[in-house]
Amino acid sequence: MFPLNDGGVISGLVCGILFGFVLERAGFGSPCKLTAQFRFNDWSVFKVMFTAITVSAVGLYLLRLTGLMAADSVFVPTSLLMAAAIGGALVGAGFAIGGYCPGTSIVGLFSGRLDALVFIVGLLLGTVVFAGLYGPTVEAIMAMAEVETGDTLVDAYEFSEPVVLACILVALAGVFALGSWFERRSAEGPVSAEQAVNGAPGEQQA
């Protein structure tokens, strides 16, 4: 029954509009709020991401359990762990330095932030540099450390899916408990919408 495998314009626009709307209302157009995660005074990034991962992972499981979705019918990234590790580190570094990740830079731009446009120009330049260096050496590095037995935690290591989902739920509770504890302890606390709209303050005001 599902997925519908609808690659059309309307499906793209609908999913994108909802995605962009939610990211903006979560505060993820603000580089100040996004990077506050790494200063530990605002745990919104971890909290929102872990909640979303849990909801959709449990949802996909239930859809398969009830027969509404066939097994192996959604795209799973290949378990090329070297590529994932290097890419993750570079995107994380870019996030800390530039204040956005690729998706949130679109949200930043469309909430009026011209620094996000500069970040997007950087994204395009990074793609050009990658395309320029692409060849046998880069391909060989990207092919390293593939998990041969499968792409998901369930397939590759034969973990039971309910157990993996239960672990994710425990991790989610842990993120909220730990995050809220850090937020209460910090002098600044989470970045409010007023603070975000006013932009990252100067050091004397911070």
């Binding site: 995605f19 990234p77 090329l80 590529a83 994932a84 290097i86 890419g87 993750g88 580190a89 570079l90 995107v91 570094a93 870019g94 996030f95 800390a96 330095i97 530039g98 204040g99 956005y100 990740c101 690729p102 998706g103 949130t104 830079s105 620094d115 996000a116 500069v118 970040f119 997007i120 120009v121 950087g122 994204l123 395009l124 330049l125 990074g126 793609t127 540099v129 990658f130 395309a131 880069v138 590095i141 990207m142």
Partner: peptide, 22 residues
């Protein structure tokens, strides 16, 4: 912003996905 974007753009091509996609 420019350098951060460059690092993220390059990195996301190595991993074939970014924070959202992967």
């Amino acid at each position: 912003a420019l350098f951060g974007g460059l690092a993220a753009g390059f990195g996301a091509r190595i991993s074939a996905g970014c924070t959202s996609g992967l």
